[in-house]
């Protein structure tokens, strides 16, 4: 498996988070220069250092994905440092738990802005540069199984991720003939800080303990165990490789059987 991405430059947004860090480490092991980006520059630096520790190449960049000019600045930096980005994985995302009737417009807008607008900004910016250079590439957006299920306590999150699934379809078809492959993954319950935080919040809403809340969630997963970051990273790596060149605009459920369509 080593070396599938040798010589390529990969951009990972939300690179300081659970899935983002896992993806960055995986791409680093397979030979890419990984531009680890995160709203937290110091968080990005920690993960970039881990990629370098395992013998890979990485740089760290603070990035607010909701801002097109910030994205352009980071892409300039990465291009100067390592070359044109031909692999991109959009992991930047936020979540919060609110009963539907209590969900504020502010919370709705913030979530859509980061999760959906942020994904659009990054996909478009990366694709524009690639097309201008006549280069081919692969882009994977991290959506969620929540995109395909009802989410009574996170309607904003579910809607933002459903938007990502549709955005990926449109971008996938728009860019297919330019040799830019765009797909998504829909993870389920992944063992990350974000998932832990969700269950702390849900326990506030449900009155169950945090452990009980998480345990019930895991019981509902057909495959019978919580998902690891690597479970997601393996599939992301497949979709970034030439093995997936005939897949266009798909959202692959990597969720242990929680969702289907």
């Amino acid at each position: 498996m080593k070396g599938r991405f040798e010589g390529a430059v990969a951009l990972v947004t939300g690179g300081a988070g659970g899935i983002g860090a896992g993806v960055a480490l995986r791409l680093g092991r397979e030979g890419a220069h990984v531009a680890v980006t995160d709203l937290s520059g110091s968080g990005a630096e920690v993960v970039a250092a881990r990629v370098r520790q395992q013998g890979g190449q990485a740089s760290a960049h603070a990035l607010d994905v909701t801002r097109a000019e910030d994205t352009e600045r980071v892409l300039d930096e990465v291009e100067h440092l390592a070359g044109t980005v031909s692999l991109a994985v959009t992991c930047a995302g936020i979540d919060s738990q609110f009963d539907f009737l209590d969900l504020s417009l502010t919370e709705w807008q913030k979530t859509i802005e980061v999760n959906l607008q942020g994904t659009f900004v990054v996909i478009q910016a990366v694709a524009r540069r690639l097309k201008a250079k006549g280069g081919k590439g692969h882009i994977v957006a991290v959506a969620s199984a929540a995109a395909k299920r009802p989410n009574p306590t996170q309607a904003h999150y579910g809607a933002s991720k459903a938007g990502v699934v549709n955005l990926v379809r449109s971008a996938g078809v728009a860019l297919a003939r330019d040799g830019i492959v765009v797909n998504a993954v829909c993870p389920g319950v992944v063992d990350t800080d974000m998932t832990r935080a969700i269950h702390i919040e849900r326990s506030r809403l449900s009155g169950l303990s945090e452990e009980e809340s998480l345990a019930r969630m895991i019981q509902s997963i057909p495959i019978g165990r919580i998902q690891t970051v690597d479970d997601v990273a393996h599939v992301v790596a497949f979709l970034l490789s030439h093995e997936a060149d005939y897949m266009v605009g798909q959202a692959v459920n990597v969720c242990g059987g929680l969702a289907f369509d």
């Binding site: 996938g172 389920g188 495959i223 393996h234 459920n253 242990g256 289907f260």
Partner: peptide
Amino acid sequence: VAKAIAFLLSEDAGYVTGQALNVDGGLEF
């Protein structure tokens, strides 16, 4: 088609089950 099948048979697809992957150049979603 074979490449996608091989991926689904591999350890890397360990957490993927019950899914139907469209490998179709963008015909269906």
